[in-house]
Structure formats: structure tokens, C-alpha cells
């Protein structure tokens, strides 16, 4: 049988899925054992048990100076910035995407501009954002927006243009105004696609968030990682990295579930 037609069974599939995780863990463990055998005070690859102990401490014990559990504060601050940045971007992208996709005049005005603006490397204008919006929350949210909004607008407007013309014409023959076409025909078909696009842009959003936090902040996941880097606290860094990964994964999962639950008609075609 051809390789392309061979399917793993249920058990094998689960095992294959776990394999790279297990291998990565084992490789880390061995590396850590070797280094610690040579030098018990080595900080670069802390033993998994050390990381677990650190994680427990970080999640449960309050900081001595401030008497707050810093990890939760960092998480709350970072998620707030992320949700604001991604949420505002998604909202603006939907509105602008519908306008650009549906209205030739808006398209003629904005499509080229958005295409050019999307070429600006967001991190290159981070200093400008800090100067203009200060070092507070605003500049971090704005960096996320600057980073993902152009992509989202282009994506959403293209999705509107991808809607078969026949469907728009059909709505016209039912007497629908531009507003009704936007609200009843285009928007409902755009939302499931918006969720897909937001899922794709979560990665860049995290990148911009951590970059902004690393440079100027007093709280946040990215801030903490770059702070403890000075003490070579690898156990703390790794805990934070694993935590961020888990958060990102859960967000992706939540969006995927939302898309399935909220838009049953997209499932119907499968």
C-alpha cells in the first residue's frame, strides 16, 4: 500500500502524538542530568524536579516584598493587554474589511494604503509608540494592534471579496440595501473566518506583547522573564514559558470550539 494511504490506528496515533513531547522532555532531562553531574550548582538546565518546585512556589506563594503572588498579577496584566489588542484589532478589521470588500470607493481609498502599512515592521516603530503613547498600558496595546491589524484587515477584506458575487446579486434581487447585504449576508459569513484569522494572529500578538513588556513595563509575563534573566533563573523562565504556551494553547482551543458551536452551518458543509 502507498505510504500516503497508510493510516495509524487509534492507539498508535495517540502514541505518535505523544512521542515528540516525550522525546523533548527526555532529551532535556538527560542534558540536565549531565550538566548537574558535572557541576551541581549549574543554572542553565535545572532538573525537572527543580522546575516543578519553582512552579509550585510561583503559583502559590506570595512575593515577600509586595505580598502578592506575582505570577497571577503578571498573567492578569498580560492577558488584559493581549485581549484588548486582539479584540480591538478584530473589531476594527471586521468593520474595515466589510467596508473595503463591499464598497468600491472605500476599496479604492484604503486597499493600497493598508497594503503599504502592513509592510512596516511593527517592532521598528516601537520606540515611536513609547514616545507618543508613553510607557504605560496604551503603548503595549497599540503595538499589538499595529502588529496584527493590517494583516487582519487584508485578510477580512479578501474574505469579503471571496464571497461569490452570485450571492450578493441574489440579495440585491430580494431588495436588500447595502446595509442589509453587509449585516445579513456578509457579516454572518465573515465571523467564522474572523475566528480563524484571529487564531492565526494570536502568535504574532504574543510576540509583540512580550517584546513590549520586555522593553518597558513593571508587570507582565514578558517583563518577568526578562527581569529574572539577569539572575539566570532558568527555572523561573521555563515555568513562565510553559505557562504562556499553555495559555496560548487554551485560547486557540477556546476559539476553535467557539467557531464550531456558534456557526453550525459551517459544520454542516463538512
Amino acid at each position: 500500500m502507498r505510504l500516503i494511504n497508510r493510516q495509524p490506528g487509534v492507539a498508535l496515533k495517540a502514541a505518535l502524538m505523544a512521542l515528540p513531547f516525550v522525546l523533548t522532555f527526555v532529551a532535556y532531562w538527560i542534558g540536565s542530568e549531565i550538566r548537574l553531574a558535572e557541576n551541581p550548582s549549574d543554572k542553565l538546565l535545572p532538573a525537572p524536579s527543580t522546575i516543578a518546585a519553582t512552579a509550585e512556589r510561583l503559583f502559590t506563594e506570595p512575593d515577600r516584598r509586595s505580598d502578592r503572588i506575582l505570577l497571577w498579577h503578571d498573567t492578569a496584566a498580560s492577558l488584559m493587554r493581549l485581549f484588548l489588542g486582539v479584540g480591538i484589532s478584530a473589531l476594527l478589521a471586521t468593520i474595515l474589511g466589510v467596508l473595503i470588500g463591499l464598497l468600491p470607493h472605500v476599496r479604492a481609498t484604503l486597499a493600497g494604503f493598508v497594503a503599504v502599512v502592513s509592510m512596516i515592521p511593527p517592532l521598528a516603530i516601537l520606540p515611536i509608540l513609547f514616545i507618543v503613547f508613553g510607557l504605560g498600558e496604551l503603548s503595549k496595546v497599540v503595538l499589538i494592534i499595529v502588529g496584527i491589524l493590517p494583516f487582519l484587515i487584508r485578510d477580512q477584506s479578501q474574505r469579503v471579496l471571496d464571497i461569490p458575487r452570485e450571492m450578493i446579486v441574489k440579495a440585491e434581487t430580494l431588495g436588500a440595501s447595502s446595509l442589509v447585504i453587509a449585516l445579513r449576508v456578509v457579516l454572518p459569513q465573515l465571523l467564522p473566518r474572523l475566528i480563524q484569522s484571529v487564531r492565526l494572529s494570536l502568535g504574532p500578538a504574543w510576540l509583540f506583547l512580550i517584546a513590549a513588556e520586555a522593553i518597558a513595563s513593571e508587570v507582565g509575563l514578558g517583563y518577568r522573564i526578562f527581569l529574572v534573566r539577569r539572575f539566570l533563573a532558568m527555572d523561573v523562565i521555563l515555568t513562565y514559558v510553559l505557562w504562556i504556551t499553555l495559555l496560548a494553547f487554551l485560547m486557540d482551543l477556546a476559539l476553535r470550539t467557539l467557531s464550531r458551536k456558534a456557526f453550525p452551518w459551517t459544520e454542516a458543509s463538512l
Partner: peptide
């Protein structure tokens, strides 16, 4: 196109959502 002309194409003539 307007209310006085109805149309049915080979495809995409109903709203999937």
C-alpha cells in the same frame, strides 16, 4: 439588480448561513 428581477444561478443562489 432589484426586486422586479428574480434570479437563480447554477450555484450559490441560497444563503449558506
Amino acid at each position: 439588480p432589484g426586486l422586479d428581477r428574480g434570479v437563480v444561478f447554477q450555484k450559490y443562489s441560497v444563503f449558506p448561513h
